[in-house]
Design a protein around this nucleic acid. Structure first.
Lengths: 201, 201
DNA sequence: CGACAAATGTTAGTTCCTAACATTCAGGAT
DNA sequence: ATCCTGAATGTTAGGAACTAACATTTGTCG
Protein backbone atom coordinates (compact mmCIF):
# COMPACT_ATOMS: atom_id res chain seq x y z
CA UNK A 1 0.00 0.00 0.00
CA UNK A 2 0.93 3.62 -0.38
CA UNK A 3 3.69 3.24 -2.86
CA UNK A 4 5.33 0.87 -0.45
CA UNK A 5 5.28 -1.83 -2.99
CA UNK A 6 8.44 -3.87 -2.69
CA UNK A 7 8.10 -5.62 -5.96
CA UNK A 8 9.09 -4.05 -9.27
CA UNK A 9 6.70 -5.64 -11.71
CA UNK A 10 4.54 -2.54 -12.04
CA UNK A 11 3.58 -1.52 -15.55
CA UNK A 12 2.03 -3.81 -18.09
CA UNK A 13 1.85 -2.01 -21.46
CA UNK A 14 3.74 1.25 -21.44
CA UNK A 15 1.43 4.25 -21.60
CA UNK A 16 1.95 7.05 -24.06
CA UNK A 17 4.44 9.71 -23.05
CA UNK A 18 1.65 12.23 -22.82
CA UNK A 19 -0.39 10.08 -20.47
CA UNK A 20 2.61 9.58 -18.24
CA UNK A 21 3.25 13.32 -18.09
CA UNK A 22 -0.24 14.37 -17.03
CA UNK A 23 -0.26 11.54 -14.58
CA UNK A 24 2.95 12.84 -13.09
CA UNK A 25 1.63 16.38 -12.98
CA UNK A 26 -1.51 15.24 -11.22
CA UNK A 27 0.46 13.22 -8.73
CA UNK A 28 2.86 16.04 -7.99
CA UNK A 29 0.07 18.58 -7.63
CA UNK A 30 -1.90 16.29 -5.36
CA UNK A 31 1.02 15.44 -3.09
CA UNK A 32 1.90 19.10 -2.85
CA UNK A 33 -1.63 20.21 -2.00
CA UNK A 34 -2.24 17.32 0.35
CA UNK A 35 0.85 18.04 2.40
CA UNK A 36 0.08 21.75 2.51
CA UNK A 37 -3.68 21.76 3.06
CA UNK A 38 -4.29 18.22 4.22
CA UNK A 39 -6.07 15.44 2.36
CA UNK A 40 -9.54 16.34 3.50
CA UNK A 41 -8.81 20.01 2.95
CA UNK A 42 -7.96 19.45 -0.68
CA UNK A 43 -10.57 18.91 -3.35
CA UNK A 44 -10.12 16.93 -6.54
CA UNK A 45 -11.04 20.04 -8.48
CA UNK A 46 -8.11 21.89 -6.91
CA UNK A 47 -5.71 19.11 -7.76
CA UNK A 48 -6.94 19.00 -11.33
CA UNK A 49 -6.69 22.77 -11.68
CA UNK A 50 -3.16 22.78 -10.27
CA UNK A 51 -2.22 20.19 -12.86
CA UNK A 52 -3.82 22.23 -15.61
CA UNK A 53 -6.41 19.62 -16.29
CA UNK A 54 -10.08 18.81 -15.78
CA UNK A 55 -11.60 16.94 -12.87
CA UNK A 56 -12.72 14.31 -15.31
CA UNK A 57 -9.16 13.72 -16.42
CA UNK A 58 -8.16 13.18 -12.83
CA UNK A 59 -10.68 10.38 -12.52
CA UNK A 60 -9.50 8.81 -15.70
CA UNK A 61 -5.96 8.55 -14.41
CA UNK A 62 -6.83 7.64 -10.82
CA UNK A 63 -10.11 5.95 -10.21
CA UNK A 64 -10.66 7.95 -7.07
CA UNK A 65 -9.13 10.51 -4.78
CA UNK A 66 -8.00 7.72 -2.48
CA UNK A 67 -6.53 5.70 -5.30
CA UNK A 68 -4.01 8.41 -6.03
CA UNK A 69 -2.46 7.86 -2.64
CA UNK A 70 -3.15 4.22 -1.94
CA UNK A 71 -2.85 2.73 -5.36
CA UNK A 72 -0.36 -0.08 -5.37
CA UNK A 73 -0.24 -3.17 -7.47
CA UNK A 74 -0.52 -6.50 -5.79
CA UNK A 75 2.79 -7.49 -4.35
CA UNK A 76 3.70 -11.17 -4.77
CA UNK A 77 6.95 -10.89 -2.84
CA UNK A 78 5.34 -11.28 0.55
CA UNK A 79 3.30 -14.25 -0.57
CA UNK A 80 6.38 -15.95 -1.95
CA UNK A 81 8.35 -15.26 1.21
CA UNK A 82 5.60 -16.74 3.33
CA UNK A 83 5.53 -19.78 1.14
CA UNK A 84 9.24 -20.24 1.68
CA UNK A 85 8.86 -20.55 5.45
CA UNK A 86 8.87 -24.08 6.86
CA UNK A 87 5.42 -25.59 6.55
CA UNK A 88 5.73 -27.16 9.97
CA UNK A 89 5.56 -23.78 11.68
CA UNK A 90 2.23 -22.42 12.92
CA UNK A 91 0.54 -20.19 10.32
CA UNK A 92 0.99 -17.02 12.30
CA UNK A 93 4.71 -17.62 12.59
CA UNK A 94 5.05 -18.39 8.93
CA UNK A 95 3.33 -15.18 7.96
CA UNK A 96 5.28 -13.05 10.41
CA UNK A 97 8.62 -14.38 9.25
CA UNK A 98 7.68 -14.32 5.61
CA UNK A 99 6.53 -10.73 5.66
CA UNK A 100 9.48 -9.75 7.79
CA UNK A 101 12.08 -11.21 5.46
CA UNK A 102 10.29 -9.64 2.50
CA UNK A 103 10.59 -6.21 4.03
CA UNK A 104 13.90 -6.18 5.76
CA UNK A 105 15.77 -5.79 2.51
CA UNK A 106 14.05 -2.61 1.43
CA UNK A 107 16.83 -0.16 0.50
CA UNK A 108 16.92 2.98 2.59
CA UNK A 109 16.79 5.28 -0.40
CA UNK A 110 13.30 4.04 -1.20
CA UNK A 111 11.99 5.21 2.13
CA UNK A 112 11.70 8.98 1.70
CA UNK A 113 8.94 9.16 -0.91
CA UNK A 114 7.01 6.49 0.91
CA UNK A 115 7.09 8.34 4.17
CA UNK A 116 5.30 11.37 2.79
CA UNK A 117 2.42 9.30 1.48
CA UNK A 118 2.05 7.25 4.62
CA UNK A 119 2.13 10.42 6.66
CA UNK A 120 -0.67 11.92 4.64
CA UNK A 121 -2.69 8.73 4.81
CA UNK A 122 -2.20 8.47 8.53
CA UNK A 123 -3.64 11.91 8.99
CA UNK A 124 -7.06 11.02 7.66
CA UNK A 125 -9.23 8.40 9.38
CA UNK A 126 -10.96 7.65 6.11
CA UNK A 127 -7.65 7.05 4.40
CA UNK A 128 -6.32 4.93 7.20
CA UNK A 129 -9.41 2.77 6.85
CA UNK A 130 -8.90 2.50 3.14
CA UNK A 131 -5.39 1.26 3.63
CA UNK A 132 -6.90 -1.87 5.09
CA UNK A 133 -9.13 -2.35 2.10
CA UNK A 134 -6.07 -1.89 -0.04
CA UNK A 135 -4.09 -4.67 1.60
CA UNK A 136 -6.89 -7.10 1.13
CA UNK A 137 -5.58 -8.69 -2.02
CA UNK A 138 -2.23 -9.41 -0.44
CA UNK A 139 -3.99 -10.65 2.65
CA UNK A 140 -6.12 -13.06 0.70
CA UNK A 141 -3.19 -14.22 -1.38
CA UNK A 142 -1.20 -15.00 1.74
CA UNK A 143 -4.14 -16.84 3.24
CA UNK A 144 -4.51 -18.84 0.06
CA UNK A 145 -0.85 -19.79 0.20
CA UNK A 146 -1.31 -21.02 3.77
CA UNK A 147 -4.38 -23.06 2.88
CA UNK A 148 -2.55 -24.57 -0.07
CA UNK A 149 0.09 -25.68 2.39
CA UNK A 150 -2.52 -27.40 4.52
CA UNK A 151 -3.53 -24.76 7.02
CA UNK A 152 -7.06 -24.35 8.32
CA UNK A 153 -9.02 -21.68 6.44
CA UNK A 154 -9.93 -19.70 9.52
CA UNK A 155 -6.41 -19.87 10.89
CA UNK A 156 -5.03 -18.70 7.56
CA UNK A 157 -7.38 -15.74 7.30
CA UNK A 158 -6.87 -14.71 10.90
CA UNK A 159 -3.10 -14.97 10.73
CA UNK A 160 -2.72 -13.03 7.51
CA UNK A 161 -5.11 -10.27 8.53
CA UNK A 162 -3.41 -9.88 11.88
CA UNK A 163 0.04 -9.60 10.37
CA UNK A 164 -1.08 -7.16 7.69
CA UNK A 165 -2.64 -4.99 10.36
CA UNK A 166 0.57 -5.11 12.35
CA UNK A 167 2.52 -4.19 9.25
CA UNK A 168 0.30 -1.18 8.68
CA UNK A 169 0.59 -0.07 12.24
CA UNK A 170 4.35 -0.31 12.04
CA UNK A 171 4.37 1.65 8.82
CA UNK A 172 2.22 4.40 10.27
CA UNK A 173 4.39 4.68 13.34
CA UNK A 174 7.54 4.72 11.26
CA UNK A 175 6.17 7.47 9.04
CA UNK A 176 5.42 9.64 12.03
CA UNK A 177 8.94 9.34 13.37
CA UNK A 178 12.27 10.29 11.86
CA UNK A 179 13.97 6.94 11.75
CA UNK A 180 15.35 6.39 8.28
CA UNK A 181 15.52 2.63 8.28
CA UNK A 182 12.14 1.35 7.19
CA UNK A 183 13.20 -2.27 7.07
CA UNK A 184 14.46 -2.22 10.61
CA UNK A 185 11.30 -0.58 11.91
CA UNK A 186 9.12 -3.24 10.37
CA UNK A 187 11.35 -6.08 11.38
CA UNK A 188 11.28 -4.88 14.95
CA UNK A 189 7.53 -4.40 14.99
CA UNK A 190 6.76 -7.83 13.60
CA UNK A 191 8.87 -9.45 16.28
CA UNK A 192 6.01 -8.59 18.61
CA UNK A 193 3.88 -11.24 16.94
CA UNK A 194 6.57 -13.88 16.85
CA UNK A 195 6.62 -14.93 20.45
CA UNK A 196 7.92 -18.40 19.90
CA UNK A 197 11.48 -17.43 19.11
CA UNK A 198 13.56 -14.39 19.88
CA UNK A 199 14.08 -11.69 17.24
CA UNK A 200 15.21 -13.07 13.93
CA UNK A 201 14.48 -16.66 14.99
CA UNK B 1 -18.26 -2.68 16.16
CA UNK B 2 -21.52 -3.51 14.44
CA UNK B 3 -23.69 -3.83 17.47
CA UNK B 4 -21.26 -6.39 18.75
CA UNK B 5 -20.67 -4.35 21.80
CA UNK B 6 -20.27 -6.63 24.77
CA UNK B 7 -20.68 -3.98 27.37
CA UNK B 8 -24.08 -2.67 28.44
CA UNK B 9 -23.37 0.90 29.40
CA UNK B 10 -25.06 2.36 26.32
CA UNK B 11 -27.44 5.27 26.87
CA UNK B 12 -26.57 8.38 28.82
CA UNK B 13 -29.65 10.59 29.18
CA UNK B 14 -32.78 8.84 27.98
CA UNK B 15 -34.11 10.29 24.75
CA UNK B 16 -37.73 11.24 24.34
CA UNK B 17 -40.08 8.43 23.42
CA UNK B 18 -40.67 10.04 20.07
CA UNK B 19 -36.97 10.18 19.25
CA UNK B 20 -36.58 6.55 20.16
CA UNK B 21 -39.45 5.56 17.91
CA UNK B 22 -38.22 7.28 14.75
CA UNK B 23 -34.78 5.95 15.46
CA UNK B 24 -36.19 2.45 15.62
CA UNK B 25 -38.16 2.95 12.45
CA UNK B 26 -35.09 4.22 10.62
CA UNK B 27 -33.02 1.32 11.86
CA UNK B 28 -35.61 -1.26 10.90
CA UNK B 29 -36.16 0.27 7.48
CA UNK B 30 -32.43 0.46 6.82
CA UNK B 31 -31.69 -3.10 7.89
CA UNK B 32 -34.55 -4.34 5.78
CA UNK B 33 -33.51 -2.43 2.67
CA UNK B 34 -29.83 -3.22 3.15
CA UNK B 35 -30.41 -6.94 3.36
CA UNK B 36 -32.76 -6.89 0.37
CA UNK B 37 -30.97 -4.49 -1.97
CA UNK B 38 -27.51 -4.40 -0.49
CA UNK B 39 -25.84 -1.54 1.31
CA UNK B 40 -24.48 0.16 -1.76
CA UNK B 41 -27.74 -0.43 -3.57
CA UNK B 42 -29.71 1.43 -0.96
CA UNK B 43 -29.77 5.21 -0.72
CA UNK B 44 -30.29 7.21 2.42
CA UNK B 45 -33.28 8.84 0.76
CA UNK B 46 -34.91 5.43 0.36
CA UNK B 47 -34.32 4.54 3.99
CA UNK B 48 -35.75 7.85 5.13
CA UNK B 49 -38.78 7.47 2.90
CA UNK B 50 -39.41 3.94 4.13
CA UNK B 51 -39.33 5.27 7.68
CA UNK B 52 -41.72 8.06 6.74
CA UNK B 53 -39.18 10.72 7.41
CA UNK B 54 -36.85 13.16 5.69
CA UNK B 55 -33.27 12.53 4.70
CA UNK B 56 -32.26 15.30 7.07
CA UNK B 57 -33.85 13.49 9.97
CA UNK B 58 -31.86 10.41 9.13
CA UNK B 59 -28.65 12.37 9.48
CA UNK B 60 -29.76 13.82 12.76
CA UNK B 61 -30.24 10.37 14.24
CA UNK B 62 -27.24 8.72 12.63
CA UNK B 63 -24.37 10.93 11.66
CA UNK B 64 -23.84 9.02 8.46
CA UNK B 65 -25.01 6.05 6.45
CA UNK B 66 -22.16 4.01 7.83
CA UNK B 67 -22.83 5.03 11.39
CA UNK B 68 -26.20 3.35 11.31
CA UNK B 69 -24.51 0.01 10.86
CA UNK B 70 -21.18 0.48 12.56
CA UNK B 71 -22.12 2.73 15.42
CA UNK B 72 -21.06 1.21 18.68
CA UNK B 73 -19.97 2.87 21.86
CA UNK B 74 -16.48 2.29 23.10
CA UNK B 75 -16.29 -1.00 24.88
CA UNK B 76 -14.19 -1.02 28.07
CA UNK B 77 -14.63 -4.72 28.72
CA UNK B 78 -11.84 -5.80 26.44
CA UNK B 79 -9.45 -3.25 27.87
CA UNK B 80 -10.21 -4.39 31.38
CA UNK B 81 -9.78 -8.03 30.45
CA UNK B 82 -6.41 -7.30 28.87
CA UNK B 83 -5.35 -5.46 31.99
CA UNK B 84 -6.22 -8.49 34.06
CA UNK B 85 -3.77 -10.72 32.21
CA UNK B 86 -0.42 -11.31 33.90
CA UNK B 87 1.93 -8.44 33.17
CA UNK B 88 4.82 -10.81 32.71
CA UNK B 89 3.36 -12.20 29.49
CA UNK B 90 4.38 -10.73 26.13
CA UNK B 91 2.00 -7.97 24.99
CA UNK B 92 0.59 -9.97 22.12
CA UNK B 93 -0.32 -12.83 24.42
CA UNK B 94 -1.91 -10.52 26.94
CA UNK B 95 -4.10 -8.93 24.30
CA UNK B 96 -5.09 -12.22 22.73
CA UNK B 97 -6.10 -13.75 26.03
CA UNK B 98 -7.78 -10.61 27.28
CA UNK B 99 -9.91 -10.17 24.19
CA UNK B 100 -10.63 -13.87 24.12
CA UNK B 101 -11.90 -14.04 27.66
CA UNK B 102 -13.96 -10.90 27.09
CA UNK B 103 -15.75 -12.51 24.18
CA UNK B 104 -16.14 -16.10 25.15
CA UNK B 105 -18.96 -15.32 27.52
CA UNK B 106 -21.19 -13.65 24.95
CA UNK B 107 -24.60 -15.33 25.29
CA UNK B 108 -25.78 -17.14 22.19
CA UNK B 109 -29.07 -15.26 22.05
CA UNK B 110 -27.19 -12.05 21.37
CA UNK B 111 -25.69 -13.47 18.22
CA UNK B 112 -28.56 -13.39 15.74
CA UNK B 113 -29.01 -9.62 15.37
CA UNK B 114 -25.28 -9.15 15.22
CA UNK B 115 -24.86 -11.60 12.41
CA UNK B 116 -27.15 -9.68 10.08
CA UNK B 117 -25.20 -6.48 10.54
CA UNK B 118 -21.82 -8.09 10.16
CA UNK B 119 -23.04 -9.87 7.06
CA UNK B 120 -24.14 -6.61 5.51
CA UNK B 121 -20.91 -4.89 6.47
CA UNK B 122 -18.85 -7.73 5.06
CA UNK B 123 -20.56 -7.35 1.73
CA UNK B 124 -19.28 -3.85 1.10
CA UNK B 125 -15.55 -3.14 0.82
CA UNK B 126 -16.11 0.41 1.98
CA UNK B 127 -17.93 -0.80 5.06
CA UNK B 128 -15.36 -3.44 5.83
CA UNK B 129 -12.74 -0.72 5.75
CA UNK B 130 -14.78 1.44 8.06
CA UNK B 131 -15.02 -1.34 10.59
CA UNK B 132 -11.30 -0.88 11.14
CA UNK B 133 -11.72 2.82 11.73
CA UNK B 134 -14.45 1.95 14.16
CA UNK B 135 -12.29 -0.31 16.29
CA UNK B 136 -9.63 2.32 16.61
CA UNK B 137 -10.73 3.65 19.95
CA UNK B 138 -10.68 0.20 21.51
CA UNK B 139 -7.37 -0.47 19.85
CA UNK B 140 -5.81 2.66 21.26
CA UNK B 141 -7.28 2.04 24.68
CA UNK B 142 -5.81 -1.43 24.76
CA UNK B 143 -2.45 -0.11 23.64
CA UNK B 144 -2.58 2.50 26.37
CA UNK B 145 -3.28 -0.18 28.94
CA UNK B 146 -0.24 -2.11 27.76
CA UNK B 147 1.99 0.92 27.89
CA UNK B 148 0.74 1.74 31.37
CA UNK B 149 1.84 -1.74 32.33
CA UNK B 150 5.32 -1.09 31.02
CA UNK B 151 5.17 -2.31 27.45
CA UNK B 152 7.01 -0.64 24.60
CA UNK B 153 4.83 1.79 22.67
CA UNK B 154 5.42 0.17 19.30
CA UNK B 155 4.88 -3.30 20.68
CA UNK B 156 1.65 -2.19 22.29
CA UNK B 157 0.29 -0.59 19.12
CA UNK B 158 1.30 -3.51 16.95
CA UNK B 159 -0.12 -6.12 19.27
CA UNK B 160 -3.48 -4.43 19.75
CA UNK B 161 -3.96 -3.64 16.08
CA UNK B 162 -3.09 -7.19 15.09
CA UNK B 163 -5.52 -8.71 17.55
CA UNK B 164 -8.34 -6.35 16.61
CA UNK B 165 -7.82 -7.22 12.97
CA UNK B 166 -7.93 -10.91 13.84
CA UNK B 167 -11.10 -10.34 15.82
CA UNK B 168 -12.73 -8.64 12.86
CA UNK B 169 -11.68 -11.37 10.50
CA UNK B 170 -13.13 -13.94 12.84
CA UNK B 171 -16.37 -12.02 13.10
CA UNK B 172 -16.70 -11.70 9.35
CA UNK B 173 -16.07 -15.40 8.84
CA UNK B 174 -18.52 -16.30 11.59
CA UNK B 175 -21.21 -14.08 10.07
CA UNK B 176 -20.84 -15.78 6.72
CA UNK B 177 -21.28 -19.24 8.19
CA UNK B 178 -24.14 -20.76 10.12
CA UNK B 179 -22.44 -21.58 13.37
CA UNK B 180 -24.52 -20.18 16.21
CA UNK B 181 -21.85 -19.91 18.85
CA UNK B 182 -20.15 -16.57 18.40
CA UNK B 183 -18.00 -16.89 21.48
CA UNK B 184 -16.59 -20.21 20.39
CA UNK B 185 -15.82 -18.93 16.91
CA UNK B 186 -13.84 -16.03 18.26
CA UNK B 187 -12.09 -18.04 20.90
CA UNK B 188 -10.99 -20.52 18.29
CA UNK B 189 -9.81 -17.86 15.89
CA UNK B 190 -7.75 -16.01 18.45
CA UNK B 191 -5.94 -19.17 19.39
CA UNK B 192 -4.14 -18.75 16.10
CA UNK B 193 -2.26 -15.80 17.53
CA UNK B 194 -1.47 -17.44 20.83
CA UNK B 195 1.25 -19.80 19.79
CA UNK B 196 2.90 -20.05 23.15
CA UNK B 197 0.28 -22.20 24.82
CA UNK B 198 -2.31 -24.57 23.44
CA UNK B 199 -5.94 -23.45 23.17
CA UNK B 200 -7.30 -21.97 26.37
CA UNK B 201 -3.84 -21.66 27.94
C1' DC C 1 -2.34 16.42 -45.70
C1' DG C 2 -5.84 13.34 -43.93
C1' DA C 3 -7.59 9.69 -41.14
C1' DC C 4 -7.73 7.24 -37.00
C1' DA C 5 -7.40 6.55 -32.17
C1' DA C 6 -6.12 8.10 -27.76
C1' DA C 7 -6.49 11.79 -24.51
C1' DT C 8 -9.07 15.41 -22.89
C1' DG C 9 -13.07 18.46 -22.36
C1' DT C 10 -18.16 19.43 -21.52
C1' DT C 11 -22.45 18.73 -19.49
C1' DA C 12 -25.62 16.66 -16.66
C1' DG C 13 -26.78 13.87 -13.04
C1' DT C 14 -26.53 10.87 -8.56
C1' DT C 15 -25.32 10.30 -3.81
C1' DC C 16 -23.58 11.48 0.64
C1' DC C 17 -23.49 15.02 3.65
C1' DT C 18 -23.81 20.03 5.83
C1' DA C 19 -25.70 24.62 7.02
C1' DA C 20 -29.30 27.96 7.85
C1' DC C 21 -33.67 28.79 8.57
C1' DA C 22 -38.75 27.59 9.01
C1' DT C 23 -42.22 24.66 10.93
C1' DT C 24 -44.66 21.39 13.70
C1' DC C 25 -45.21 18.81 17.76
C1' DA C 26 -45.29 17.33 22.79
C1' DG C 27 -45.75 18.59 27.57
C1' DG C 28 -45.92 21.79 31.49
C1' DA C 29 -47.68 26.28 33.57
C1' DT C 30 -51.63 29.15 33.82
C1' DA D 1 -58.44 23.98 27.44
C1' DT D 2 -54.82 27.56 26.21
C1' DC D 3 -50.56 29.31 25.72
C1' DC D 4 -45.53 28.78 25.66
C1' DT D 5 -41.33 26.77 25.08
C1' DG D 6 -38.01 23.65 23.54
C1' DA D 7 -37.36 19.51 21.01
C1' DA D 8 -38.08 17.12 16.74
C1' DT D 9 -38.79 17.55 12.09
C1' DG D 10 -39.13 19.81 7.54
C1' DT D 11 -37.35 22.84 3.62
C1' DT D 12 -34.05 24.75 0.77
C1' DA D 13 -29.57 25.41 -0.90
C1' DG D 14 -25.21 23.87 -1.67
C1' DG D 15 -20.48 21.41 -1.59
C1' DA D 16 -17.77 17.43 -2.81
C1' DA D 17 -16.93 12.76 -4.73
C1' DC D 18 -18.00 10.45 -8.23
C1' DT D 19 -20.35 8.52 -13.10
C1' DA D 20 -22.19 8.47 -17.86
C1' DA D 21 -22.74 10.15 -22.52
C1' DC D 22 -21.22 12.74 -25.89
C1' DA D 23 -18.13 16.33 -28.10
C1' DT D 24 -13.52 17.94 -29.00
C1' DT D 25 -8.77 18.19 -29.33
C1' DT D 26 -4.26 16.12 -30.06
C1' DG D 27 -0.70 13.12 -31.54
C1' DT D 28 0.68 9.71 -34.99
C1' DC D 29 1.06 7.16 -39.13
C1' DG D 30 0.19 6.23 -43.95
Amino acid sequence: MLGTNICRVTASAQPSARTARTRERLLAAALDLFSRNGYDGTTVAQVAAAAGVTEMTFYRHFGSKEALLLEDPYDPLMVAAVGRQPVALPPIVRVVRGVRTAWEQVPIEDAAPVRERVRIAGGSPALRASMHANTRRSQEAIARQLVDDGADAVAAAVASSAVMAALMTALLLWAQGEDADLGAAITGALDVLDVGAGPKG
